[in-house]
Computed example of a mutant assay.
Amino acid sequence: MSSIRTSRRRKTAGAGLAALLLAAGAAGCGTEKSPSMSPAAAVAKAAKNTEDITSFRYRMTGKVPEEGRVKAEASMRTKPTVAMSMKITALDQGADGTAEIRLVDKAMYIGGGAAAAKEMDGKSWIKFDMSALGDKGLGGGTPGAGQADQNPATESTFLTGAKDVKKVGTETVEGTETTRYSGVVTLKDLKASLKDKDKATREAREKSIKQYEKLGVDELTMDMWVDGDDHTKQFRMKGEADKGPLDMTITFLDVNKPVSVTAPPAKDTADLAEMMKKALDS
């Protein structure tokens, strides 16, 4: 009788162990990632996911033509209206190389602090009407002005236009495990890749492409770091422009969190349009 009870206990324990192993296996199957995508497919999926991003905070470091080395941190939202706040330093421009830029209500405000106030009757901000500037943009001269109205989430999708996307390996970026991909994309190929995109996506990417055309960049070498949720965590773009090398790295610090940007006080702001009108009337 004792041997029968022992046998039953062994069977019960064996059944329990088998159930435990099956459960563990089922859990493992549930959390196991799908078969590895090709590098091109992984990059395309991350690019697709940018369409769900309406706000983000990011860091920018590198080198841009004319301005030289720059570093910046910014917050941007794309809906319901476009707004951006950036603090940027052009490291090669000395004391005059630091500025704060705000983009809100279709106007760009550039603040230079006390140094700017000395030149503008005590006003530390200058206002540019972006709608009046049209496609001319702000160009160089003011640190970061040329990059301020560009959407880095849109630019992060550029690698989808490359024909030679390859997986480089895995790396940790800001404490996040990522997979790094690399490739070379020409602006010609990038334009060609837009033909099947919807109107909004196509227009957003065409706007970004124009910025590189203005710089005289024909080809970009690009690296893209994609996290476990198939979102771009970081990307780097390198190219040769008419007025020097371009080498810029954008790191996304968070996404889809509230971004609020307000215009500087009117008493501290000089309106460029009004300044020009006064100059013409004098």
Rank of each mutant, 00 (worst) to 15 (best):
E155H: 02
K136P: 00
T154W: 03
G139E: 09
G144S: 07
A148T: 04
T157V: 11
G140K: 14
N151R: 06
T160D: 02
A132V: 15
N151K: 08
K166T: 15
T160K: 15
G139A: 10
K167F: 07
T142R: 12
N151H: 08
K163F: 02
D149A: 12
T157D: 01
S131P: 06
S156A: 15
G161K: 13
K163V: 00
D135Y: 04
S156H: 07
A132K: 15
G144C: 05
A153C: 11
G141F: 08
G144T: 03
L159T: 02
P152V: 03
A145Y: 03
T154K: 01
N151Y: 06
G161N: 10
Q147L: 14
A162G: 07
G146A: 15
S156P: 00
M130E: 06
K167N: 06
P152R: 05
S131F: 12
G140P: 00
D149V: 07
P143S: 01
T142N: 08
K166S: 13
G140D: 07
L159G: 00
S156Y: 07
T154N: 12
D164Q: 10
A145W: 05
K163M: 05
G140Y: 14
P143W: 05
A132G: 13
Q150K: 13
L159R: 11
Q150M: 12
T154Q: 10
D135G: 00
Q150A: 08
N151I: 11
F158D: 02
G139S: 10
L133S: 02
A162L: 09
V165L: 07
D164N: 15
G146H: 10
G146L: 13
A153R: 09
G144P: 09
D164G: 02
G161T: 04
T142Q: 11
K166Y: 01
V165N: 07
A148K: 06
D149P: 03
D149W: 12
T157H: 04
A132Y: 15
A148L: 03
E155Y: 02
G146K: 14
K163R: 14
A153I: 12
G144Y: 04
E155A: 05
T157S: 11
G141K: 12
A162I: 05
S156M: 08
Q147C: 04
F158E: 02
P143Q: 01
L138H: 03
K166P: 11
